[in-house]
Measured scan of single mutants.
Amino acid sequence: MTTFKLIINGKTLKGEITIEAVDAAEAEKIFKQYANDNGIDGEWTYDDATKTFTVTE
């Protein structure tokens, strides 16, 4: 398992979430479901060097 981080730069929600996932594809699926569940819709980026996803509304 690898640790992945999501940085949320939303209009109403900001913060960071860290999860353990098998790979970046699994982490992205989990993070996008979390964002969808919380009404966050924005532009996604991923930095493989730091294993960090960012979503900006």
Rank of each mutant, 00 (worst) to 15 (best):
D48K: 03
D23N: 14
T45L: 08
Y46W: 06
T52N: 14
A21S: 08
I30E: 03
K11E: 06
A24H: 12
T12V: 13
F31V: 14
G15M: 04
E57I: 10
A27E: 00
E28V: 14
K51Q: 09
G10T: 09
A25H: 11
W44V: 13
E43C: 03
K14A: 05
I8F: 15
G15V: 04
Y46P: 00
E57G: 09
W44F: 08
T2Y: 13
T18Q: 08
E43I: 07
A49H: 14
M1F: 06
A25W: 05
T18L: 15
V22E: 06
A27M: 01
E26Y: 15
T3W: 11
G42N: 04
T2D: 10
Y46L: 11
L13W: 14
E16K: 04
G39F: 07
A24L: 08
N36K: 13
A49V: 09
T12W: 07
T12K: 08
Q33R: 10
V22M: 08
T12H: 15
F31A: 10
K14P: 06
L13C: 02
F53Q: 00
A21L: 04
D41V: 14
T54S: 08
V22P: 05
L13H: 10
D23M: 03
F53V: 01
I17T: 10
G39T: 12
F53E: 00
I8E: 01
T18E: 15
A35G: 07
A24Y: 12
A24E: 05
I17F: 10
I7W: 15
T12L: 10
Y34N: 04
T52Q: 11
K51A: 13
D48S: 13
F31D: 00
A21C: 03
V55Y: 09
G10C: 02
W44R: 01
N36Q: 12
A25E: 07
T18S: 07
K29R: 10
I8G: 03
Y34V: 08
Y46T: 02
A49S: 14
T18H: 05
D48A: 12
Q33T: 11
T2K: 03
D23H: 05
T12A: 11
A25L: 13
E43A: 11
A24M: 07
G10M: 06
V55E: 00
Y34M: 14
E26M: 13
L6I: 04
D23T: 11
T56P: 01
E26G: 13
K14C: 04
F4K: 00
T12N: 15
A21V: 08
E20S: 03
A21M: 10
A25F: 13
T12Y: 08
F4H: 05
T45D: 04
E43Y: 09
T3R: 09
L13K: 06
F53H: 03
V22A: 14
N36C: 03
K11H: 02
F53L: 02
T2W: 13
N38M: 07
A35V: 10
A25Q: 10
I8V: 13
N38L: 05
W44L: 08
E43G: 13
F4L: 01
D23V: 14
W44E: 00
K51G: 04
T56G: 04
E26N: 06
K14F: 06
T18W: 12
F31K: 00
G39R: 12
N9V: 11
D47I: 09
L13Y: 13
K14Y: 14
T18C: 02
G15N: 11
K32P: 00
L6G: 03
D47G: 15
G42C: 01
F4T: 00
